[in-house]
Nucleic acid binder design. Structure first.
Lengths: 236, 236
DNA sequence: AAGTGGTCTAGACCACTGT
DNA sequence: CAGTGGTCTAGACCACTTC
């Protein structure tokens, strides 16, 4: 019998991971607003660690585009201009349409079952809940659906890019609004997508998903209240 | 008068950059073959530096997908499986078609002029040279054309992704073969692309570029001599 | 039990900043 | 010219591998 039975359960993460996740959470959670400046040393003293792992964490955040390292000025939390949002949506459209094509071709029966399961659960909630309670229950289900779907593409390179771009947008918590506004539409789209996956129809899946993303973008822009020309985004 | 007049010309790069570029070159140049294992310490002693900057360089190479860090085994040079190549081409198709759409919409007159200039130079070479000499002269021109084209998209996020994926393929020096094999086709495609840019026809540009990438992929596969099913790549 | 790889610390050093 | 930020060194330490 080991002295601490939970010892195996507690993951001993490298310090740089912990720091990375904390800074990341602070940015994504809105605690650190765009434009905020900070240095390696600050973080290091706050966590009572040396600067090396902090540098490693910051380097990772930089490659993800969440922060910018300005020489002699420190690290700056990057903000997203309307133009950036448009570009990210355009990228998402290109990448995710590619991914859903892969899903329609590559998904195993098992994976389709997983997607089906999330849909069934969503259906249950839609029949028993409503209003905010429904939205609260629905949001994590959508997350699970998306995860199951993209995993089923068997195209890890594509999926990695998709997640990193989706996360860029998570930062502005418009996501919840977008979902809540079109909850039923979101559900029926996903039902339809599932049908295309089962029928192995990549083209239909891609077209449907493209219009789904277009809708999300429009709601997003509406929510942000920025009347940027969306013309340049509308490419697939 | 400064003591060393050239002092300003010599860029003092951070050590990690130097190390990064050397390792990168070794991998891309084929000196370090896929599967080769090495450790931070090895590199550090070879360059007579400490391990910290080496770690930073390796971290960067890891995010680029050129190497993999295997716990307790060291760093391993990653190879590209046929499946990877197919996925990268599929990604390139999605990303580059998006980019050329942007070019057709966003390119300034000045940028179009730059593209035109590279085409004119290519034309000159095609009229005066032939065989290997032509290919030698043509390859860098294509590089300049591509650079000018993608820059003109005004979509830096997209362009960054494009370059990083193109570089993944540079490692296998099939590029030159691909260009040499279809030199005239490559030229006329680019002439046509330029026309679509000038006429502001994003759809036509995207379609043409898609088929251009499909052609490259086929030649690539042929050159590699791997008869992988290309079905799953053929998505836009 | 010795060796190797991975991580972190502490601190030196230099370039650039702003008074 | 003091202060701050960025980079690198040297080495300690622990986990895991291997003999």
């Amino acid at each position: 019998m080991p002295l601490l039975s939970k010892a195996k359960e507690i993951k001993i993460k490298p310090v740089r991971e912990i720091v990375y996740e904390h800074i990341r959470q602070a940015i994504v959670g809105g605690e650190l607003e765009p434009g905020t400046r900070f240095t390696d040393g600050e973080i290091a003293t706050e966590f009572n660690i040396s600067r090396t792992p902090v540098r490693e964490a910051i380097q990772k955040l930089e490659t993800e585009g969440l922060i910018e390292r300005v020489p002699m000025k420190g690290n700056v939390v990057k903000g997203l201009l309307p133009k950036d949002v448009a570009q990210i949506f355009a990228l998402r459209k290109a990448l995710e349409c590619l991914a859903v094509r892969y899903v329609a071709v590559n998904a195993t029966e098992e994976e389709l079952g997983l997607i089906r399961a999330t849909l069934d659960q969503a259906k249950t909630y839609m029949n028993t809940l409503q209003g905010d309670a429904l939205a609260d229950a629905y949001v994590p289900i959508v997350a699970r659906y998306n995860k199951a779907m993209f995993e089923a593409s068997h195209a890890p390179r594509v999926v990695d890019l998709i997640w990193s771009h989706r996360e860029m947008l998570d930062r502005y918590r418009v996501v919840r609004i977008v979902i809540a506004k079109r909850l039923h539409e979101s559900y029926s789209t996903r039902e339809q997508m599932y049908g295309y996956f089962v029928d192995r129809k990549p083209d239909d899946a891609a077209i449907l998903w493209a219009s789904h993303i277009d809708r999300s973008y429009r709601i997003w822009i509406e929510a942000i209240g920025c009347s940027e020309d969306i013309g340049t985004h509308d490419y697939m």
